[in-house]
Structures are given as C-alpha cells and as structure tokens.
Write a protein that binds this DNA or RNA. Sequence first.
DNA 1: TCCTCATATAAATAAATTTTATCACAGCCC
DNA 2: GGGCTGTGATAAAATTTATTTATATGAGGA
Lengths: 293, 293
Amino acid sequence: MNTRDLAYFAQLVELRNFTQVAAHFGVTQPTITLALKRLEDEFDARLIHRDTSHTRLTVTTAGRQLYQHAQAITRELALAHTEIDHLREEKIRFGLPPIIGNYYFPKIAAKLVTVGLTEQLMTQGGGSGTLLTMVQNGSLDIALLGHSGPLSAPGLTVTQLAQAPFRIVVPAGHPLAQQKSLAFTALADQPFVVLDEGYVHARAFRWFTQTAGVRPNIVYRSNDVGVVKQMIKQGVGIGFLTQIAITAADGLVAIPIAQTDQPRFTISVVHRTEQVMTPLLTTFADLLTHSQK
Amino acid sequence: MNTRDLAYFAQLVELRNFTQVAAHFGVTQPTITLALKRLEDEFDARLIHRDTSHTRLTVTTAGRQLYQHAQAITRELALAHTEIDHLREEKIRFGLPPIIGNYYFPKIAAKLVTVGLTEQLMTQGGGSGTLLTMVQNGSLDIALLGHSGPLSAPGLTVTQLAQAPFRIVVPAGHPLAQQKSLAFTALADQPFVVLDEGYVHARAFRWFTQTAGVRPNIVYRSNDVGVVKQMIKQGVGIGFLTQIAITAADGLVAIPIAQTDQPRFTISVVHRTEQVMTPLLTTFADLLTHSQK
DNA sequence: TCCTCATATAAATAAATTTTATCACAGCCC
DNA sequence: GGGCTGTGATAAAATTTATTTATATGAGGA
C-alpha cells in the first residue's frame, strides 16, 4: 500500500472535498477518487459516504478509524526522517530548560568537558512543555526536564534524577523570614512575584493555591528566574520557587510550605523509547543519569 | 512510499540475506535490492552495510532507526485492518477475566439486558495480562481488567472503576478466623492455596511475601477461583484473594492483611485511546463506567 | 431550463515495480 | 589454481500500478 494514498485520504477527511484535495497535492481530481477506491478495496469497507446530494460528504466509522491510523503512520514516517537526518550530523540535540540549566546542570557540565562531549552537544532552551513536544516529534534526542506530577507520555522513557521541594521565598530581612514553615492560607493577602505560565512552577503554584482554597495576589510575572529573584529581594513581593533555584549568594530565605502530600519539583532525563542509541548518545545519557548525586 | 518496501526492509533486517527475503515474499532477488535502494534514496542514508566479504551484512544506525518505525507502521496498518474488519460485525468485543466476570460483572449484567445490548456482546475470557495485549492489538474493543499497581500503557485509556483490598482467606472454623488482622510474617509456615501465575493475584501475592521477607509454602495452585475456595474450605491451606471474590455463601472468612501501603485489587475499563467510538461502544462504555455505584 | 459545482468513469499515458538475464565477487573444495 | 556455489548488483524488458485527459452524470441554484 502506498502512503501517498493515506496522505490523500487524511486530507480528504479534513477538507471533505475531492477537488480541493487534488489541488492541495497538485494532482487531478480522478487521482483522489481512485486513491480512495484503492483504500476502500484494500480495507474492504466504505470509508467516505458520498451523499446523493453532493453538498457535503461524510466520513464513515471505518473512515474515521483509518484516519487515526493514517495520521499515526504519517507521524511515524516524519519521525523516521527527522531522526535519520539528525543521525548524519553526529550531534546530540539536547533540551535544557533555563532553571535546570542555571542551577542544576553546572554539576554535570564539568564532567561533560572531561569526557570531551561539549563539541557534539547542541543545546536547546525553552520551557519544559515545549521541550517535551520536541523530544516526542524527534526535534530533540534527549532532554532534562522539570515536572511536578509524575511525567508519563506514550513512547517516552523517563529517568528521574532529582527532586526538590517548592518553597516560599522572601528577602533576608522580611517579617516572615524567621518562620519555620508557612501555610498558603496564611499568605492570602501577600503580593506574589512568580514565574510565567509554561513553567512547571506555574502549575505547581496553582496546585498549592487551589488546595489551600486561596486566590493569590500576583503582582508580577516573569519568564526569567533572575528577574523574579531580584524583585523578591527588592520587596516587590514574596516568591514561589523550587529550592534548587535558590543559592546562598541570593540573599533570600526559602521557607518550607506546610501542606500535606505536596508536589515536588522533579528533574528527569527524557528520551524516546524507540530511539536507537548511538554510542555517543549512550555515553551522554549515562553521564546525565549517573554523574549526579 | 510503498509500505511493501518497509516490509521487505524489516524482513531484511531480520534475515540479513537478500535471497531469503525474496523467497519469503515470493519475489525475485533484484526486487529486494531495488526496494532497499528506493528506501536509501528516500531517507538519503545507507541502511544496510554490504560488507565486501559477502559473509554477513550489517544494519547501520539509520537502518536500525528505520526498522523501529517500519515495525510501528506495520503494526499500525495491521491494527487498522482488524479494527475495520470488526466494525463490519457491529459487535463489541469485550474482555472479561473470570474473577471479575463471576463476582463483579453481574451487577452490570442486569442493566445490559434492559438496554438490550447482550446480543451485540462477544465476551472473551482469559487472564488480565492476555486481555490487555488483545486490547492493544485490536482483538478486543474494550475490557474490564484487574490490576494491582497503576495500569498505564501507551495508547490506552484506563478508567478506574473500583478497588478492593486483598485478604487472607480461611475457613469459618479455622484457628486464625478470629483474628482482626494478620501479618505475612506470622504466616510463614502456613500452607497456601493460591491462584495461578498470570492472575493479578499472583503478582500481588509476590509483593506481599517479598515485602514481608517471607517464602510462603504454596501447596496448591489453580486457575479456577471456585477450586481455590473449595480447597480453602476443606482445610488444604489458607488463601489469598481479593475481597470481592468472597461472598457470604462461601463459608469463608476474609481477614485484613497488616502491611502499610499495600496494593489493592483494582478494576478498570480499558480501551485504545485512538479507538473510534461507535454509538454502540459509547453506550456500553458509559454503562460500564457509570452503572456502578 | 441552463449553468455551476462536485464526483465518477474509461481510455490513454506515464511512472513505478518486478522479472529475466547476466555479471561480479568472495569463499571453498578438490 | 580452477571450477563450483552462494550472494548481491545491474541493465533491459515486461508488467503492474498510478495519473491524466476527456467526458459523463447528477444535484442545486439562478
């Protein structure tokens, strides 16, 4: 069976018009009619119901079923192409979100240099969500990602590396700085400076506020951790960050949050399960997985 | 691109011999050579390394990568065929393991009759493991499955219905029958009558014994719950069953097990995420999911 | 009623795949 | 070494499959 027929079919399901599909692929209309006929013969089922009134054609159940698989096959083929293209370059496409890049990755970076892998590394920044999609569609070979719930997606192998709690962050002299722990219910009126949507932090923050039944007063959002920390330090508001984002030099105090069964910031190595591991990639994955502790 | 070329290629990776692959598909040898050449052109990469000494050919990294995807596409295509074939019959292929069938399903069965769905139902028995595979490869549309850990497999939608604890089961007059709870460590010398491997029970039993650090004395295994219960009743040994497998009429006593964070017997509705839901299947799935309290 | 839009069909053509026939090369046995 | 065998490559011919061209059909609207 020809995958082109599947492509014609998928487009037909989307456009529901033979002529337009033909135009889309730069072929003539009978080509689409015949391609559909081939598929209907192959699967021995009507896939598109041609209504007597040619107003609008409908997709049969079998057609919708096949559409799903046609999509899956197209994805699979595209993935094969990207993967094999990347193979040629002998480079590792590595996804690394800024927070992990700044605060966690340096531990590993030193070893990377000693092994001499830095040359082959193409590092890609961005939010954990974006990077996850990129691993799935083959744009990245491997990534270090932050997540708060368990991270599970079909076809991905996830190795958990480290966890850190989320904290309330205040400047050193702040009235709350002496507290041993804080409950969100007690912070209802506090101004908050937080990380942008798209960060794992945003989702975790929502978990905490919703669980506590609090509507937080967010005075500033940024996609830059450095900015957030500066604002906290200057007293614009208190912060919500994972422990690892805070260093001694920041002049900030990280206070544990009082809430049972709270999510933690988790760092994992993620790659496609079916990804064929080159020696290079194996070395790098091992390095990520074992070098830390 | 023709999927036949992928089939030739996959077989070539497995047999590593052009002539044998040709024979396998009933075509001539140049066909395989040319099919491979087409793929190598399409992906612009060498897939098979033809050694100068024709002893044994090796698969390149790109070849191994493509092999994975060729397999996936073949599976996808096969699944499309089975699904569309099944659609023709207007029947629901329903997987139901014996324990759930005997003790849990009757609650739902009555409603099934009133809705008039019984005629369209093709029920398939077997262990939860087997049935899970059958859902995955399209042999079944939907199944009620028992599991103990969280059940997650790529491409499956799992709706949890009910949970029940595992219990130690003894006949009414047994010396242990008065106990409020039992620890496995205290049962090291007891003879056990248990369900066969392949049942969720076997895995859970292993969890309990391993966690307790006990090597149980299993005197009898059966794949029939009725037999197991009869043997327990006649004093052959004590049993390990989920609470729902025990009814008042059995004359058996189910005693809670003292162990923290113990797994529970969970019943879930499972179907393929990509499965197109016919009205019939939707009705049935809703019935399974909601009919129970 | 006629025109337009949308799909189907048949024959002709073009493109692709497969076969036939043959070559090249390495390993092996005598 | 010389011939035999197993294995794959190549070129041309044959065959199969896909696409186009040209035309038909049928519904809906002006």
